[in-house]
Design a protein around this nucleic acid. Structure first.
Lengths: 217, 217
DNA sequence: TGTGTACCGTACCGTTCGGTACTATGTCAA
DNA sequence: TTGACATAGTACCGAACGGTACGGTACACA
């Protein structure tokens, strides 16, 4: 679900290490956390357990590396089109963002990693949870913030608290779909394309109802 | 618990079994899923492992029993005040509901059980996840549905799809607080009473903006 | 050619855990 | 009192897992 915007945080993983983490992610997606055994990863990735411990320290290190690796892989296309846009163009951009967000969140790998972090937490200060929030959610947030900013500059939106506006947008788009998917439910509104399109449109409509200049209450 | 308790609370657990499950829940809240070992439960509850297996079958049976037990304990007070209400009274009821919802979701036990179910899922068809949705979410849903129904009958609200209205209400009230708490973050808007009150009021305001008769768009 | 480095594959160790078996203790009913 | 039953406590077993050690191999570099 993630990228990292921090320029000085880079995925210092070699190709081999990346391949190993890829295999580990495959195991995770298929079998959940219990499937992530050091022996299992070594077998799936054709590497030695000794290398695993040399590269990642211990099992928890492997889990953390899986998150940062996936985050570095799913880089978000910034795609910010300057501040001069029509209301329609901006609305379309918002819809694209909402769709991307739902696509990422409903992805198998994202769900598996979130389940992993949630399952581990909050034991040990929820290291994985923090990692996931830091590397995943914050980049989505930043992309959205840029988007909202440009909407404001274009005169389409109006708000005092941009962060609050983002929270609203996120709530309207995602709702409790995320938790339900994490619990194993197949959310109907996300399965077929039509229902999903309708949902996104309604969410964006309502967002505009709150924050567009025409609809201020 | 079976004896001399609330007639509303029914579960097929004896007092002793309830006490054991209580101890297990304590372990879960304190130490996460890894703390739920059969030996640990037996020690904490002063019972024998043999009794655990006799009562609950196996470890997964214990986990499932913990969920159903907790669900049977937290039964929601229906408190439905008939359909003839003023708009203000109904609004107040909605706020009470929203507050109760946030209180339940941010409770340690609820969070721990959700983490447990999510961590196990979706392996094995996510039995625990279904159980949690079935026994937990649906009761909240039904209480809200009654509430919304009475709001409609009182002429305060208007909607075609009551379920969709509930989803909206849930999204506005809970937002992504739930996932963030599950990931171990302490959500600021839920910590102090003031911010929380503001959040609930805004959520209900917006809900009315969507569904009250005066604000239809 | 020799030497170091990185890695694989496997064997191994100590611990933990789920699950079972057995004994001891208490309780209730006839 | 006696016998049936439920449960606590403990000991035990086999499997799985995290982590370590070691031998063998390919390759780089001098």
């Amino acid at each position: 679900m993630n990228t990292h915007a921090d320029p000085y945080i880079e995925s210092d993983f070699t190709d081999r290490q990346g391949a190993v983490l890829e295999a580990a992610l495959g195991l995770l997606v298929e079998g959940g956390e219990k499937a992530i055994t050091t022996a299992g990863i070594a077998r799936a990735a054709n590497c030695s357990k000794e290398s695993l411990y040399k590269w990642f320290g211990d099992r928890d290190g492997i889990l953390a590396a899986m998150i940062t690796y996936q985050a570095s892989k799913v880089r978000v296309s910034a795609r910010l089109g300057g501040p001069s846009q029509s209301a329609e163009a901006f609305r379309a951009e918002l819809e694209v963002f909402a769709n991307d967000l739902l696509t990422v969140l409903s992805g198998e790998t994202s769900l598996a990693l979130n389940r992993l972090a949630i399952g581990q937490g909050s034991r040990e200060g929820s290291v994985l949870g923090n990692l996931l929030i830091e590397r995943g959610r914050k980049t989505v947030r930043e992309r959205a913030m840029v988007l909202l900013q440009s909407g404001q500059l274009a005169g389409v939106l109006r708000f005092d608290d941009r962060a609050a506006a983002f929270d609203t947008l996120y709530s309207l788009v995602v709702g409790d779909f995320h938790v339900r998917m994490l619990l194993g439910e197949t959310v109907p509104a996300l399965r077929d394309e039509l229902a999903r399109k309708e949902h996104v449109e309604q969410a964006i409509n309502r967002f505009h109802l709150f924050y567009s200049k025409d609809h201020m209450n």
